[in-house]
């Protein structure tokens, strides 16, 4: 189990729905929405947020720089 947890914030209006982040994510966090943004693109969102480790792979390969990544230590229960 990862000791860190992450989250991504997608700039929905600027996402072009290319899906490169989906492929890049090592923990299958990201999927594309069924609905579309103002430009008509499906956009990235976290379908599986608990699995995000904040590794930034998605943001690094995003050609449009629409993903911001956060990461912190998991709160111990």
């Amino acid at each position: 189990m990862s000791k860190v947890i992450g989250a991504i914030v997608v700039d929905i209006d600027k996402c072009k729905g290319c899906e490169l982040c989906v492929v890049a994510c090592p923990t299958d966090v990201i999927d594309m929405t069924k609905e579309v943004n103002a430009k008509g693109y499906a956009y990235a969102y976290m379908i599986n947020p608990e699995a995000c480790t904040g590794c930034s792979h998605c943001a690094t390969v995003c050609p449009d720089g629409v993903i911001t990544v956060y990461r912190t230590k998991k709160a111990t229960a």
């Binding site: 930034s56 390969v61 995003c62």
Partner: peptide, 30 residues
């Protein structure tokens, strides 16, 4: 999680806010 102190990646300030004119998934942006 989504707090300024936890930020690990965001678009560089050396890029403008303008939306890139490239096609979806084009390597130019990266």
């Amino acid at each position: 999680i989504i707090k300024p102190e936890n930020l690990v990646y965001t678009k560089t300030k050396n890029m403008t806010d303008k939306e890139l004119s490239y096609c979806p998934g084009c390597g130019h942006g990266t």
